[in-house]
Amino acid sequence: MPPSQRFAQFKLVLLGESAVGKSSVVHRFVKNTFDNMRESTIGAAFLTQSVTLPEINATVKFEIWDTAGQERYKSLAPMYYRNAHAALCVYDITNSSSFQKAQNWIKELKKQASEGIVICLVGNKADLEDERQVDANAVTAYVEELSGEGIQVFTEECSAKSGEGVLEIFTNVAKALPVEETINGASKPSAGRQSGVELNRRPQQQGCC
């Protein structure tokens, strides 16, 4: 079977405090670029990017919802993480409060988001090691604590500025996603897959009422 036919699409959302680098991580992943001056995100931004998994000969396409981190837009976040298959909770390793915010997002996701959502705790700005405020051991301890509660979260660090570790994060998320199940059960799409619609289909057919 040609690789192009082994294809799965997943919805991924980025959450985290303002100015931790969510948009920078996404742009590094999608466009492999980095801007020193980036405008604050309004509402949310939508991008797509694919990751190839040669091990299983499959391509995973991410629909990435890069949400705004400002408190003002916190109420819009559920709209974007609803039916998401994966979430990156991003924090800034030079800002301890952003790590606390990321923990809050994880709690909210476990309460509100889809059942089998894959959560990755991402520490950005790894190039600023001198200014580190969030101890890597504390992060590991927190993840283990979550694991004890039955919540599977894996953690990574990256630098959107240097590009280090960014692709690995998305690759690891793709590996953690149920790619095989989605490909094999294409005729029987998962709950998350239902969020995609055919553009030609009349919209009233998707109505909730």
């Binding site: 709209m79 969020s195 919209p203 909730c208």
Partner: peptide, 20 residues
């Protein structure tokens, strides 16, 4: 009926953002 329901339907975010 569809005129009224235009305001009620849940729409895929991607389409909304495309128009946005």
């Amino acid at each position: 009926e569809l005129q009224r329901k235009s305001w009620i339907f849940l729409v895929d975010l991607r389409e909304t953002h495309e128009l946005r």
